[in-house]
Simulated scan of single mutants.
Amino acid sequence: MIRTLLRAPQGAGEVAADALRVLAAISIVVAGIGWGPLSGLSFVLVTGAMFLPRLLGVRPSFDIVFGVASLAAAWSSVLDIYITVRWWDLPIHFLTNGIWAALAYLLLVRFGIVADAATLPRPAVSAALMTTALGLSLGVLWEMFEWFGHNFIDGEIYVGYTDSIGDLLIGGVGALLAGCSMRYLAARPGVAHDREPSPVVE
C-alpha cells in the first residue's frame, strides 16, 4: 500500500484526485488564518483522511468523489452553511456517510479485519449489509461528536433529536447505496475482478 501511496499519479483522474489533496492542504492555512486554529485543525484531519483512498488504490472516480465530499463538508462547517441553510446537512450526510462507510469497509477488508464479501456465498447482500452497518455506526459517532462540540466547544453547533434522527436516516440510506455499489467501488483499476476466489487449502 505504501508503494501505491508514493507512486506518481497515472491518468487525468488520479491527477485530479491529487489536486484535491493539494487543495485540502492549502485549506489548512486558509481556514486557520481566516477562521481560527480549530478550523485549520479540521482541515488537517480532512487532508489526512483524503490520503486513504490513494493508499488503498481505489478507482480515481471514487477518490475524487471522496475528496470533493470531504472538502464540501469541512468548508460547509467552517462557513456556517449548516446553520444558515438548515437542509444542507441532509445531502452532505447522504454523500459523506456513503463514501466513508465504503472506505471503512475497504480498509477493514484490506487489513483482514472483516471478510471480503467477494469470498462469501451472497457477496452483494453481504457487502450492502456490512457497509450499511458501518455507515450507521459512523453516523452515530458523528452525532456524538456534534453533541460534544455543542456542549463543550461551540454552542452554535446545532443539535436536536429530530435533526439527529434525520441525519442518521439519510446517512444510512447513503451507506446502503454505497454498499449496493461495492462491486464497482472495491474494484482496483487494471485488475480483473471476475475470477473465482482461490480455494482454501485445508
Score class of each variant (00 low, 15 high):
residue 126 S to G: 00
residue 127 A to N: 10
residue 56 L to P: 07
residue 40 G to Q: 06
residue 83 I to H: 10
residue 90 L to M: 09
residue 101 A to I: 01
residue 3 R to C: 07
residue 45 L to Q: 07
residue 89 D to N: 09
residue 88 W to H: 10
residue 143 E to W: 08
residue 173 V to P: 10
residue 130 M to R: 09
residue 48 G to L: 08
residue 129 L to A: 15
residue 193 H to C: 05
residue 36 G to P: 11
residue 178 A to K: 01
residue 114 V to T: 08
residue 51 F to G: 10
residue 31 A to R: 03
residue 110 R to S: 13
residue 116 D to C: 04
residue 153 I to C: 00
residue 25 A to M: 12
residue 29 V to M: 00
residue 174 G to K: 10
residue 124 A to C: 01
residue 178 A to Q: 01
residue 109 V to I: 12
residue 28 I to A: 04
residue 111 F to V: 15
residue 6 L to S: 06
residue 134 L to P: 06
residue 131 T to L: 05
residue 139 G to M: 02
residue 152 F to I: 03
residue 144 M to Q: 05
residue 185 L to P: 05
residue 147 W to R: 05
residue 9 P to D: 12
residue 5 L to I: 05
residue 3 R to T: 14
residue 36 G to E: 09
residue 151 N to F: 14
residue 184 Y to Q: 12
residue 182 M to H: 06
residue 93 H to S: 09
residue 56 L to A: 12
residue 78 V to N: 07
residue 58 V to Y: 02
residue 180 C to D: 00
residue 171 G to N: 07
residue 200 V to K: 01
residue 33 I to C: 09
residue 160 G to F: 10
residue 65 V to N: 01
residue 151 N to C: 06
residue 117 A to P: 08
residue 187 A to L: 03
residue 97 N to E: 00
residue 60 P to V: 04
residue 124 A to N: 09
residue 19 A to W: 01
residue 140 V to P: 00
residue 137 S to G: 15
residue 172 G to W: 01
residue 55 L to N: 03
residue 153 I to Y: 06
residue 177 L to F: 11
residue 84 T to A: 14
residue 183 R to S: 15
residue 68 V to L: 15
